[in-house]
Amino acid sequence: MADFSSFDRPSMGSSENAEAAELQRLIAVEQQKAQFQAQVHNFTDVCWDKCIDKPSSKLDSRTETCLVSCVERFIDTTLAITNRFTQMVQKGTH
């Protein structure tokens, strides 16, 4: 990836600065999309093991519901563990 720090140079005109800022914004958007996709890969990995027994000719509605619940509960678990861990650290009990 290119070094974008040079875009901050004050010698640049304001239109160039605006262009650089726009480029950085666009790249941040793409990075967010990539992060989202990476997370979807992780969820699919975990939830495939939980919900799919033998691959059939179609994803039935029961499997679909299982996948959706799996994603929701995985996120809930992440939040619950993060919260509890934060409390533990704050209390300094562990």
Binding site: V40, S57, L59, L67
Partner: peptide, 22 residues
Amino acid sequence: AMCMDRYMDAWNTVSRAYNSRL
């Protein structure tokens, strides 16, 4: 072949579920 199709279905379902949660 079947597993590949179902895996991609599952990926899309998970993607939609994650997106709506976000």
